[in-house]
Design a protein around this nucleic acid. Structure first.
Length: 838
RNA sequence: GCCGAGAUGGCGGAACGGUAGACGCAGUCGACUCAAAAUCGACCGGGGCAACCCGUGCGGGUUCGAAUCCCGCUCUCGGCACCA
């Protein structure tokens, strides 16, 4: 019969046992509850992009949140009062689509029920992560207590003229009977129905973001990735130029915008967008049939369709002519869909000699090409020109401006500036700035969003719902229709109300708001989630905002982040806050991919399930691996073998701290081993601090592995009795705390501490522990490594060089010639430059 | 087409202009075990017995010294794409 050893088996690292226990303890202690009024420590607002409650916490959520949590914990240990909140972006199409799908199958599912169920599930999954979220400040945007303030802000914006209603072209899905966002239209078809999307002109609510265009171009004081700033700048698309008024023969003005007023004399035709209001008036009877057909065809196409057809220029002559104001010439008026009604004035002057698109059009339809800018050293001819000339040169065929240089010469002396000056003096046009940015269309013909708080009264017209009557709540008892049409449009109790101004009958607006409205100001609400007398607690916001650090995926570079900046400026102008920028520092993490290096998706079958990983390895291992796998901003493929390695590391950390050492406790302690140990400890402090500061989690984990290796190597029954060993264990556990909070807490307790490791101060590296007595130098001859020497740390350069020359292999290489230069890099290497003899 | 970012062992990745490949994965060998797993130890860019030589996408350059800086390419990945 085999006899078991009488020694007690060392207790093993068991994350399943310790993790839930500590999470419960932290919750009971309120360890992560943030006192927003605590003025004893500097504040730090650490925000991550809140998720849509899809119902399942994806490993992508872990990748976004776990390293962020480590960075937030690090800041906290550094002495900051860190707010790290979490909430849910709870309105949106997927839940409503599920309700509509259910309706088609004769079942009944309400988006609210579905959403709150999913939120509950995701919260439980989030809890497993062991993050320091302060759930007491949670917000859920589909709560009336939240969206009420969307409505409040909307009304304030109506009062200021920042929200308005106008007709606008939208993507209309004829099968689902609803407007679709651009992102939902794929190759001209609705993403769910597969139906060809139509362009429809509908009255829609807009926010006047263009009023802030110039301010939005100013990023001063922001630490944002250049990439994001560039994307926003391009999206806003500021163009400087002039608006010049051409006229029809009948005298109707056709204002055109141009960035090249210096080429006005080369305008040989005018092009109107097919939707341009003047089209019908300028069209002659002879051309009418053709024009009408072209306009109808253009109208039927979505913008996506127009682009999908490539760059082939199409268009039709209207039969009408316009007068070029600078030279009185009559030029033909065409219509073409390459001119967009939504940009500039919806009409252009075409200068084919100096604009690529105009040249392509002119060549396609045999229109005149006239050169008005000649580059030096060439003689361009309009008849033979193969490529539009867009560079600088000298103005020709331009009347009084002949001989004027174009381009940036001396300030204000270039052709553009001089022509604009002259146009203004003559009353023919004026300086003008145009933006690509369009006003933000926020109407959605959907149920699951914030109801737009406006009323239509037969007598008073458009009337905002009085602030004290807010919120306009979404009626819960509606029935979802298989057609996909919003139930609000037919739900009588919602539709009918009375006008607050005249008391007569009024009808409610049935459009709801774009969900980007919710995310445009949500970070203020974390600071006062239950406030009932206003959207924002101005005093707390003054202290806590702007957000110090905002992390999230780069996919929100334009929409959300641009809207958030816009909104912050609006809130400032409403007097609710003082600053105009929401996020001081922005950091974009990368994306975690499937093992096959492809984006994770159910259809590919490469989805990694974090719940299973937590069951198998524990939350700390999942966290640590996600930090170790690659640089945070880079992202990369998941690897199941990789997490094994990290799990082994955590086990070794456990062993080195907890398990009894081997050897004789009475043996003499080797002072050199103690010194090496202390150096490893303090090097780790320095490196891990540095890495966490810069979000380099992968190298931070690597440094901790190095420290653990050094400790395992040094460990003996004698050394564990020294203060150096106690310091090493304490330091390892403290440095590990932000990364693997459960394991660190368990070990901390086992080291004999009564309070949480997460209340500890971050250690400081002791410079004296880093000092070496002996330093290893690499010895190079002519830049090639030839040997190594060890010298005392205080050796003078001469002594180092002498030692280098004497190194075994080095001397041989010195025989080839005379030393002409000796380079000593302190603490690193010696390079001896030898000039060969002869 | 335009604007970004990147390219380093079998793999993920480290490297203030200073010993390329830290740390981990995979692999090889060894210890423990009846055996296996787990664990521990050693090795681990290529060539060569060695001295050495070659090596950070490609071609040049600067430098005592270049993955790193400069010039010119190639490829990959993102974003924008008729914006007058």
């Amino acid at each position: 019969m085999a006899r078991q050893s009488l020694e007690p088996r060392p207790e093993r690292y068991d994350p399943q046992a310790i993790e839930p226990r500590w999470r419960r303890a932290w919750a009971e202690q309120g360890l992560y509850r943030v006192d927003l009024h605590d003025h004893t420590r500097p504040k730090y607002y650490f925000l991550t992009m809140y998720p849509y409650p899809s119902g399942d916490l994806h490993v992508g959520h872990w990748y976004a949140e776990a390293p962020a949590d480590a960075a937030a914990r690090y800041r906290r240990m550094r002495g900051y009062n860190v707010l790290f909140p979490m909430g849910f972006d709870a309105f949106g199409l997927p839940a409503e689509n599920a309700a509509i799908r259910a309706a088609r199958e004769g079942e009944s599912v309400h988006p609210a029920t579905l959403t709150y169920d999913r939120i509950a599930r995701m919260e439980a999954q989030f809890d497993q992560m062991g993050a320091m979220f302060d759930w007491s400040k949670k917000i859920v945007t589909c709560d009336p207590g939240y969206y009420r303030w969307n409505q409040w802000l909307f009304v304030k914006m109506v009062e200021r003229g920042l929200a308005y209603r106008k007709e606008s072209y939208v993507n209309w899905d004829p099968v689902d009977q609803t407007v679709l966002a651009n992102e939902q239209v794929i190759d001209g078809r609705g993403d769910r129905s597969g139906a060809l999307v139509e362009r429809r002109l509908m009255p829609q609510w807009h926010f006047r973001i263009t009023a802030y265009a110039d301010e939005l171009l100013d990023f001063s004081g922001l630490e944002w990735p250049e990439k994001v700033k560039t994307m926003q700048t391009n999206w806003i698309g500021r163009s400087e130029g002039a608006e010049v008024v051409f006229r029809t023969e009948g005298g109707d003005p056709i204002p055109v915008f141009t960035t090249r007023p210096d080429t006005l004399w080369g305008a040989t035709f005018v092009v109107l967008a097919p939707e341009h209001p003047l089209v019908a008036r300028v069209t002659t009877d002879a051309q009418r049939a053709e024009v009408t057909a072209y306009v109808a065809a253009a109208e039927a196409k979505s913008e996506i369709d127009r682009q999908a057809e490539g760059r082939e220029k199409t268009g039709v002559f209207t039969g009408g002519y316009a007068v070029n104001p600078v030279n009185g010439e009559l030029v033909p008026i065409w219509i073409a869909d390459y001119v967009l009604m939504t940009y500039g004035t919806g009409s252009i002057m075409a200068v084919p000699a100096h604009d690529e698109r105009d040249l392509a059009f002119a060549r396609a339809f045999g229109l005149q090409v006239r050169v008005v800018v000649q580059p030096s050293g060439a003689e361009l001819d309009g008849a033979t020109l193969a490529e539009a000339y867009t560079g600088d040169g000298v103005m020709v065929n331009s009347g009084r401006f002949d001989g004027t240089p174009t381009g940036k010469g001396e300030a204000g002396a270039d052709g553009i500036a001089r022509v604009i000056e002259w146009l203004e003096a003559e009353g023919l046009g004026e300086r003008k700035v145009t933006y690509r940015l369009r006003d933000w269309l926020i109407s959605r013909q959907r149920y699951w969003g914030t109801p737009i708080p406006m009323l239509y009264c037969d007598d008073c017209g458009l009337v905002p719902v009085p602030l004290e009557q807010l919120p306009v709540e979404l009626p819960a008892e509606v029935a979802f229709m298989p057609t996909g049409q919003s139930p609000l449009t037919t739900f009588e109790p919602f539709l009918h109300t009375t006008c607050p101004d005249c008391g007569g009958a009024a009808r409610r607006e049935t459009d709801t708001m774009d969900t980007f409205m919710d995310s445009s100001w949500y970070w203020f609400r974390y600071l006062a989630p239950d406030k009932t007398d206003g959207p924002i607690d101005t005093a707390i916001a003054k202290r806590w905002t702007p957000v110090d650090l905002y992390t999230g995926g780069v996919e929100h570079a334009i929409l959300h982040l641009l809207y958030a900046r816009f909104f912050t400026k609006v809130l400032r102008d409403l007097g609710l806050i003082e600053h105009g920028e929401p996020f001081k520092t922005l950091y974009n993490q990368g994306m975690i991919l499937g093992e096959d290096n492809e984006k994770m998706s159910k259809s590919r079958g490469n989805v990694v399930n974090p719940d299973e990983l937590v069951r198998g390895y524990g939350a700390d291992a999942v966290r640590t691996y996600l930090m170790f796998i690659c640089p945070w901003d880079q992202g990369g493929p998941w690897n199941y073998q990789g997490i094994e390695g990290v799990s082994r590391f955590l086990n070794r950390v456990w062993s080195v701290v907890v398990e009894p050492p081997a050897g004789d406790p009475a043996a003499a302690v080797d002072e050199a081993v103690v010194k090496t140990l202390r150096r490893a400890v303090h090097t780790a402090i320095r490196e891990v601090s540095d890495d966490l500061e810069g979000f380099r989690f992968n190298t931070a984990v690597a440094e901790l592995m190095t420290l653990q290796n050094a400790m395992s190597k040094a460990k003996s029954a004698a050394i564990v009795l020294t203060p150096a060993w106690e310091e090493a264990c304490r330091t390892l556990v403290t440095l590990l705390a932000p990364i693997a909070p459960h394991l660190a807490e368990e070990l901390w307790q086992r080291l004999g501490h009564a309070t949480s490791v997460h209340l500890e101060r971050w250690p400081e590296a002791d410079a004296s522990a880093l000092v070496r007595d002996e330093v290893r130098y690499a010895v190079q001859v002519n830049g090639k490594l030839r040997g190594e020497i060890e010298v005392s740390a205080d050796a003078a350069d001469e002594a180092i060089v002498t030692a280098a020359k004497a190194a075994p292999n080095v001397a041989r290489h010195l025989e080839k010639g005379a030393i002409v230069r000796e380079i000593v890099v302190p603490g690193k290497l010696v390079n001896l430059v030898v000039k060969p003899r002869g």
